[in-house]
Amino acid sequence: MTLAAMRRLPLAAILCLGLAASGCQRTDLTQQTKKTEARICTELATVNQALEQVAALTPTSTVGEARAAQQTLEQAIASLQASENQLQTLRVEAFRKLLQGFREEVAKASANKEQTLEQAANELKPKAMAVIAARRALSAAVQCEEPAAAAPAKP
């Protein structure tokens, strides 16, 4: 093994560990998102039960029963809101990490002086499409209006 190859070995090991760690982080974010979505479903059921408790109040119900039903509903709504906020944070974090990864890929492509612009574009296009799809999904999740497509430049 040459000296240059021996120097590259630790670098290759570090890069592999870095890629493995970033893959684990994406999986971890996905798992956290799924758990939070499941918690939201459970909390929606709890809100529904609290609403049924409020709807079950009658003119003969006591003030204590009405207060208890109101408190249960407020707690259920607060828990639901907290989980929705956490889910949104997780979605934004996942998008931010995907975007950062794309920025790193662009930097690598621009640093490669041996490839043509066409080669760089062909390499980056699928990665850009993934970022665009993630941005659209994030926008849809928070009900953003999609920006109008830019008019093509006149020659």
Rank of each mutant, 00 (worst) to 15 (best):
A76W: 00
E84S: 14
Q70L: 06
A50N: 03
V47F: 12
E123W: 03
G101C: 01
A38P: 10
R91M: 09
A20V: 06
A68S: 03
K154D: 12
I132E: 10
T60N: 05
N112Y: 02
C144W: 05
A121P: 00
L124I: 03
V131S: 10
L44Q: 06
R39K: 04
P155V: 09
Q31W: 06
Q71E: 06
A21R: 13
L11H: 13
T2Y: 08
R26D: 09
C24N: 11
Q70G: 02
V63C: 07
P152D: 03
C16K: 08
V106K: 08
A94M: 14
R8Y: 08
R39F: 03
Q81D: 15
R91P: 03
A69R: 11
L19D: 09
R135N: 14
I77E: 09
A107L: 07
Q86F: 00
R91V: 01
T58D: 09
P155S: 14
Q31E: 05
A133D: 03
P147L: 02
R135A: 09
E118N: 06
P147S: 08
A111E: 12
N112L: 01
T27H: 15
L80P: 01
R7P: 11
C16H: 05
R91G: 04
S61I: 05
A111T: 12
R39P: 04
A56C: 06
S79G: 09
P147G: 03
R39V: 10
S79F: 00
A69V: 00
T46P: 01
V92F: 15
L90W: 04
A140S: 00
